[in-house]
């Protein structure tokens, strides 16, 4: 069975480490916040200028001055700090954020990512994604392994305009966990009940498959 959105987020949450500063993109990455293991502390960064995103507000707490990068109302966590967007991107570009999780349309075997622009469709803009992928040493991409017509999103070369080059290290899809290195996707884990053959079929780029590919574990 392929993973649903929450299960992808649960698997990504296993990559979090105690004391990490983390930036979560819009969509599946945002869900990761719901699955932070109880025994660790992480601090979430919002690129408009907030380090320490708290829970969504109650009706009484809603404040137009307090939003996240997705323009949703939020609260500040205990120990949060608030700063300008220039300061925010200084910490992103300067490599101070430990982990960035974001979605993508395509990634390729050289770690290139395309996530913001489909030619012929309206371009809404890259927001902070280009800065985030250029600044983080540790980037996890979450996406479905293939599109609705079963076209692979893990390619030899991205076909869409790039958001960043050579930056993606790890990918969590609905089918697998993969590492990107030495010009290939390396299969690390498969979703429960998903065969290596299916992953091979849906990976257009070069895929390295070890002898034994363990199933993902969701035991807390």
């Amino acid at each position: 069975m392929s993973l649903n959105r929450d299960q992808i987020a649960m698997r990504v949450a296993q990559e979090l480490e105690d004391g990490y500063y983390v930036n979560l993109g819009i969509g599946i990455p945002t869900l990761v916040a719901n699955y932070v293991p109880n025994d660790i502390e992480v601090m979430l960064q919002s690129e408009n200028g907030l380090l320490g995103i708290g829970p969504y507000p109650t009706e009484d707490q809603v404040d137009a001055d307090m939003i996240n990068a997705g323009k949703e109302t939020v609260t500040a966590a205990l120990g949060a700090s608030i700063f300008s967007s220039a300061e925010s991107f200084a910490m992103i570009r300067g490599g101070h954020v430990n982990l960035t999780v974001l979605g993508a349309f395509e990634v390729d075997q050289n770690g290139n990512i395309a996530s913001y622009m489909i030619p012929g469709k309206l371009v809404k803009g890259m927001g902070g994604a280009m800065d985030l992928v250029a600044g983080a040493d540790n980037i996890i991409v979450t996406m479905t392994h293939a599109d609705k017509r079963d076209n692979s999103k893990l390619l030899e070369n991205c076909s869409l305009p790039l958001t960043g080059v050579g930056c993606v290290k790890r990918i969590v899809t609905d089918l697998a966990v993969l590492e990107v290195k030495d010009g290939a996707f390396h299969l690390l884990e498969r979703a429960p009940g998903v065969s290596v053959e299916e992953i091979q079929q849906k990976t257009a780029g070069k895929l390295v498959v070890p002898e034994h590919v363990p199933e993902m574990s969701f035991d807390a």
Binding site: Y56, T58, I67, K71, T73
Partner: peptide, 11 residues
């Protein structure tokens, strides 16, 4: 006026 684009509330 401080209009809010996306009011999101705790569950």
């Amino acid at each position: 006026e401080k209009r809010i684009e996306k009011i999101t509330l705790a569950k």
